[in-house]
Design a protein around this nucleic acid. Structure first.
Length: 760
DNA sequence: GAAGCACTACTTTTT
DNA sequence: GTAGTGCTTC
């Protein structure tokens, strides 16, 4: 036990050992926030607290997993395992699986992701004959999500004069009706969206006191990480659950609140002292991560915000290097400057790639950076972006699994009823939806019962529908007896998805097949990792079953995927949002331009601008040794060239921490653009050259169309080196299928593609 | 009912 | 620039 405390500084130790009563830990960036929380849990366990009485809530699965691992390291495996540690969504989903029957939900309810939600809204719009342009799907979903996060039901929504006025002003007066229909359809599908996991948990605790008491008694200690990111629903549920023991500990940093756009309420952390007047307050202000330069520059930035809890973050670390500033004429040059700078640092200091991270405001910015890194042969890895689990083929197969587990899952059914193609077309599906709406029963029920209202569907089609239902039923039957992997493989083979993709025989279909294989591998791993099949999980779902796997997958994001190779050495690319909680020796923050960062959509209000500033604060404080920021004077956005000005955030950095632009790249052409007063016409001209100026001195010259042959090693201006897998066509239509390293297969029409032979 | 082609929105961030 | 949607044609 003394061992445990010896590794902590004074305020951290205080925050760990005072385990009773409401506690707020305000922790600056890099001050050991997670450490304090982890040690507090470990300390509780050492003091003899029952692991089953501890609930720790985090914002991401990754944070929960890491915390669990660290607790288990500190106090040994057995006790740590039983602590409930997870995201709000996963913990509440678990409670709802066990208790949802009170609200009329089966244990096997489906969790819709935002993709499912959007599809559902789209189909409701067309049923209500509303113009999908007037009622933008994202807007509607955002409104609904906000309402649920604030615990508004559709009725509350429709009855709220403020909301109705706002919707009328936005020319979308029927949003409430869409909300009502949307919720009804979710219910009919035995499905909940992300926000329902919170909304329904609150409903459960509000309307079923005996259920609330059960969890109130059980969770003697409740700990919440990243409290500044909680929304109203989360806040309210925690408060209710903690009401009996009031042993609630929240950890957070108001300066790192970056999720207000999706309902996080910074007031929750500011109001903690009002909710619990007798609370203990601990401040962790010593930063162990970054240099003095970084800490002070970041402090200076955040001072521009009005809404904040005053605190003084300081560090004993050394002064360190100044913040670098790279100025580029175009987004592609920005990529080059960053890649060259990384290359330079690597060489002069003998650093591995994993010392570097490149952070950006939006995912779309990664492209120009990637191209530059590829040209410099610097390995990199992108975090976030299109998730593995949201790829079409993966979702298609997962939809079959979902349908096996929950036949009422309408979004899953609509996805796969005619994929792979089985002759059930749009007209038939529309007829089914009409009957489904009339009878308020799911499409699967209607098909299975050969409902008499289907009489105007012809016999051939009816048979096809029957076959589809029978096939799915046969899968469901096997759920009890087969392991997740065996069943998944059986389904994959039976539906013929691989055969359909092979038939297609395109470049994409090859990688789709690979993705399906990867999904099956993941299920195999899961089957091996999980305990014996006969054991029942706490929520009554058979372990190792497909249902169990699907429950885990529903709340996973790519950020939660384990690294393929722990020792792999690559530069990390991610959005600033995704970087929260991480640290890197060298950090590049790119695209510091007005309208991009801060985002154009944040310029409307002070609150939103302050959130962007906190985002910049988060980005800066990821760095241990050195920060380099960059901006481009022009950038391709929406496919066309736009001019941009340096971000106001650059000016907010105290100049004494800033290294003024200087020569960074050895190329003559690039140097000119570093000169502060070079005029824009010159820059425009240069820009044209800078694209191919990096990999070779000569202009890129394509080889003769007829000389290409399968097996040759070639170089593409954009994609780099690759190998020709296949050639087809002749003359102007001659096409090559090329596999590029790190990119994958591409089909190139040689007439257009700039392709050079570099070896046989 | 299916395949091919043209159009258009997309770029904020995520459980 | 691209991916996804919707329209048209067979």
């Amino acid at each position: 036990m003394t061992d445990l405390l010896i590794q902590l500084n004074e305020p951290q130790r205080e925050a760990v050992v005072n385990t009773s009563g409401p506690t707020m830990i305000i922790a600056g960036a890099g001050s050991g926030k997670t450490r304090a929380l982890t040690y507090r849990i470990a300390y509780l366990l050492q003091q003899g607290a029952d692991p089953f009485s501890i609930l720790a809530l985090t914002f991401t699965n990754k944070a929960a997993r890491e915390m669990k691992e660290r607790v288990m390291q500190l106090i040994g495996d057995s006790n740590g395992r039983s602590v409930w540690m997870g995201t709000f969504h996963s913990v509440f989903a678990r409670i709802l699986r066990a208790e949802g029957h009170h609200l009329g939900y089966p244990q096997n309810f489906t969790i819709y992701d935002s993709d499912d939600s959007k599809r559902l809204i789209k189909s409701i719009l067309s049923e209500l004959n509303l113009d999908p342009k007037a009622y933008n799907v994202s807007f509607v979903l955002h409104r609904i999500s906000n309402a649920k996060s604030n615990l508004f039901s559709p009725i509350d929504y429709i009855n709220s004069p403020e909301i109705q006025t706002a919707d009328a002003a936005a020319n979308k007066p029927l949003t409430g009706e869409i909300f009502r229909a949307y919720n009804a359809r979710l219910k009919r599908s035995d499905a909940m969206d992300f926000d329902d996991l919170l909304y329904n948990t609150n409903l459960l605790f509000r309307d079923f006191p005996e259920v609330l008491h059960k969890y109130q008694h059980r969770f003697r200690y409740i700990l919440v990480d990243e409290y500044q990111d909680t929304n109203h629903a989360q806040y309210f549920i925690i408060k209710r659950m903690a009401a009996l023991h009031e042993n609630i500990t929240v950890v957070g940093d108001d300066a790192q609140s970056i999720y207000a756009f999706r309902g996080a309420n910074i007031q929750n952390i500011l109001n903690f002292k009002v909710d619990y007047p007798d609370h203990n307050l601990y401040r962790l202000e010593q930063n162990y991560r970054s240099t003095k330069t970084i800490v002070n520059a970041a402090n200076g930035i955040i001072e521009n915000n009005k809404d904040q809890i005053k605190k003084t973050v300081w560090t004993e670390n050394e002064e360190g290097q100044l913040i670098g500033l790279l100025r580029a004429t175009s987004d592609s040059e920005e990529g080059t400057l960053v890649a060259n700078s990384i290359f330079g640092h690597k060489m002069s200091k003998q650093l591995p790639n994993k010392s570097f991270a490149i952070l950006y405001r939006t995912n779309s910015q990664s492209r120009s950076i990637e191209e530059a890194l590829r040209r410099q042969s610097i390995p990199y890895k992108i975090y976030g972006g299109l998730s593995f689990y949201s790829r079409k083929e993966v979702k298609d197969l997962l939809s079959y699994f979902r349908l096996v587990i929950n036949p009422n899952d309408e979004e899953a059914l609509l996805r796969v009823i005619n994929y792979p193609v089985r002759g059930i077309g749009k007209t038939t599906i529309e007829k089914l939806q009409v009957v489904s709406n009339e009878s308020n029963s799911s499409i699967m029920e209607i098909i299975s019962n050969q409902d008499h209202r289907l009489k105007d569907i012809n016999r051939g089609t009816l048979n096809k529908l029957g076959d589809f239902a029978t096939m799915l039923k046969s899968f469901s039957v096997q759920m009890e007896s087969k392991s997740a992997f065996d069943l998944a493989q059986h389904i994959t083979n039976s539906i013929g998805i691989i055969a359909a993709l092979k038939e297609e025989d395109s470049v994409e279909s090859v990688s789709r097949i690979e993705n399906i294989e990867e999904l099956l591998n993941a299920i195999m791993e899961f089957s091996e990792r999980e305990p014996v099949a006969s054991e029942l999980g706490e929520d009554g779902v058979p372990a190792r079953s497909l249902a169990h796997f699907m429950q885990e997958v529903a709340l996973l994001t790519d950020a939660d995927k384990k690294d393929d190779d722990e020792n792999a050495d690559y530069v990390s690319l991610m959005t600033i949002h995704a970087s929260k909680g991480l640290e890197f020796p060298y950090v590049f923050i790119v695209g510091l331009e007005e309208n991009l960062f801060p985002s154009i959509q944040s310029l409307g209000s002070r609150a939103e601008l302050e959130e962007e500033r906190r985002l910049f604060y988060v980005a800066l404080t990821r760095a241990q040794e050195k920060v380099t920021i960059s901006y481009a004077e022009s950038r391709y956005r929406w496919g066309s060239l736009t001019m941009s000005e340096p971000s106001r955030f650059i000016e907010e950095i105290d100049s004494k921490y800033l290294d003024m632009p200087r020569r960074v790249v050895p190329h003559k052409k690039a140097v000119m653009s570093q000169l502060p007063f070079s005029n824009s016409i010159q820059k425009g001209v240069e820009n044209k050259f800078s694209d191919n100026a990096n990999s070779s001195q000569e202009p890129f010259e394509s080889s003769d169309i007829d000389s290409f042959q399968a097996g040759m090693v070639v170089e593409h201006q954009k994609f780099g080196k690759g190998k020709i897998i296949q050639m087809e066509g002749a003359g102007a239509n001659r096409k090559a299928t090329v596999f590029f390293n790190g990119i994958g297969q591409k089909q190139l029409l040689l007439k257009f593609a700039k392709l050079k032979i570099i070896g046989d």
